[in-house]
């Protein structure tokens, strides 16, 4: 199965296997390297977007044929939303760029623009079931079109003002990228186990990928 995940300090398949054995830990100081993206595009990329491109760069090559995209995130661009709401409260003019990039499907749109992928795109947010909702969507689309679908899940910690509303632990910024092919036996097994554990966290999902050795 083709997948990779990015978290600060842990961002290759090898890193993740070492992390699973407690031989490697997160390094919150690390930021995603997206130097391969042109500066005029790069300036618009949020920290979430940079994670997605860094993850994609590790397991999808330039020759990859476009395929449908499914992007899921629980909180999405919450930092930008907080900035906009703050400006609104202070009766300041809202940044058009921040507004455009704060909506939930902006990142999948940006991915299509940068990669010049004109295939369909879907953006999902489903609370603490976002990881599984995205996977179920990607798997269903793949089954319907009988071709692979590219799935990304990404999130970062909630902004300070919303910390009191979080359930569970703060996880580091994290992005998981996975090519979902419903005709693949291992994928089907993964899909059925996700359906039994819909509130799976991104970290638990990575643990599942590693434990199944896919």
């Amino acid at each position: 199965m083709k997948w990779n995940a990015w978290a600060p300090g842990v961002n290759t398949r090898k890193d993740w296997h070492e992390w699973a054995k407690n031989e490697k830990d997160f390094d919150l100081a690390q930021i995603p390297d997206v130097s391969f993206i042109k500066p005029m595009v790069r300036r618009r990329l949020s920290s979430l977007a940079k994670m997605v491109f860094a993850t994609a760069n590790q397991f999808i090559d330039e020759q990859q044929q476009p395929m449908p995209l499914v992007f899921a995130s629980r909180y999405g661009e919450m930092d930008k939303t907080v900035q906009l709401l703050t400006q609104l409260c202070n009766q300041e003019g809202l940044s058009p760029t921040n507004f455009g990039l704060s909506v939930h499907n902006s990142l999948v749109g940006m991915f299509g623009l940068v990669k010049k992928w004109t295939d369909s795109s879907t953006a999902i947010g489903a609370g603490n079931k976002s990881v599984s909702a995205g996977l179920i969507e990607a798997y269903s689309q793949s089954k319907a079109i009988q071709a692979p679908v590219l799935y990304f899940y990404y999130d970062e910690a909630l902004p300070k003002v919303y910390q009191q509303y979080r359930d569970g632990l703060n996880t580091p910024p994290i992005c998981i990228g996975l090519i979902v092919d419903a005709s693949d036996q291992a994928m089907t097994v993964l899909y059925h186990s996700i359906k039994k554990q819909v509130a799976i966290s991104p970290i638990e999902f990575i643990q599942l990928l590693i434990s199944r050795n896919v």
Binding site: M40, E92, G93, L94, S95, P96, T97, G100
Partner: peptide, 17 residues
């Protein structure tokens, strides 16, 4: 310089402020 329509809106706001 290669700016686009989103930049035009953003720059308009900055000039106004």
């Amino acid at each position: 310089l290669g700016l686009d329509s989103i930049d035009a809106l953003e720059l308009g706001l900055a000039i106004k402020n």
